[in-house]
Amino acid sequence: MIYQKVALLAELNCLVAAHQEEITKWKMIPEAVLQSKEHPDQWSAVECIEHLNMYARFYNAEIKRRLDKASKEMCNEFKSGYWGNRFAQDMLPKADMKMMKTFKSKTPVLADLAVAEVLEEFTALQAELMELLSESAAYNLTKIKTAITLPLLKFRLGDTFRFVIYHNERHVVQARKAIKKAEHLL
């Protein structure tokens, strides 16, 4: 799939800004609601956000490292790779969204989480991601490859951005549902 780079970066930037804005509003929600879970096997809203923080720590650093090593090169198009496109598309929330297993290292533990700190870190990491999106406009998103959390696979930078931001969207939707259920229970 081929994307116009400017349009793709604008779309992704809008999603990140929407995530930041929504999570900022959650700072006004009682901690009990953000920590509540309907079932022990399900994540609370704050666990969803901490899970995203865990991934953002890795991906923001990886993207920054790759941009620092790359040469600027203007290119108006981004050509998605097969696996990168597939993984990104799988992350998009759907009505019949299935739960996916996550790595144990990326599974948050509710007892360890300070709600305010988790939300603050999320907004800071998303601000950093927006800066990386902006910086990447001067690079070829097809040529730069990034490591992902699955060993042996690398994605094109454009696919990495799509995967990370669509993954964020998936879990923001999940967290929103957890909040609505908690508000009805508490």
Rank of each mutant, 00 (worst) to 15 (best):
L34T: 08
S44T: 09
K27F: 04
A45G: 04
F87G: 02
E47A: 02
F58V: 04
F58A: 05
R66D: 14
H51G: 00
N85S: 06
K79L: 11
L34N: 07
K69Y: 05
R57H: 12
K64H: 12
W83G: 00
N60T: 04
S80N: 08
A56I: 00
K37Y: 02
M54P: 01
A70E: 07
M74V: 14
V46F: 05
F87R: 03
E77K: 00
A61Y: 14
P30T: 08
V33N: 03
E47K: 11
K69L: 13
Q89R: 00
R65T: 13
C75K: 08
Y55G: 03
S36F: 14
I29H: 00
I49C: 08
E47R: 10
Y82W: 15
K27S: 10
R86P: 05
N85E: 09
P40A: 10
Y55A: 01
Q89D: 15
K37F: 00
N76A: 07
I49P: 12
L67T: 10
I63N: 01
E31R: 04
G84A: 06
L52I: 10
P40C: 03
Y59H: 06
S36L: 11
W43N: 02
N76Q: 12
S44L: 00
Q89Y: 08
Y82P: 04
G84P: 00
R66Q: 14
A70Y: 01
C75W: 00
I49H: 01
K37V: 03
A45C: 05
I49K: 00
F58S: 01
W83A: 06
E77W: 06
W83L: 15
V46C: 00
K79G: 09
E73K: 15
M54A: 05
S71L: 14
K27T: 13
A56P: 08
R65M: 08
W83K: 10
A32E: 13
N60G: 14
E77S: 14
F87Y: 03
K27H: 04
W43Q: 04
Y55K: 01
N60V: 02
K79Y: 08
E31M: 03
E73Y: 06
E62P: 03
K79F: 09
S71M: 12
S71Q: 15
Y55S: 02
Y55L: 06
A70M: 01
M74S: 14
K25N: 05
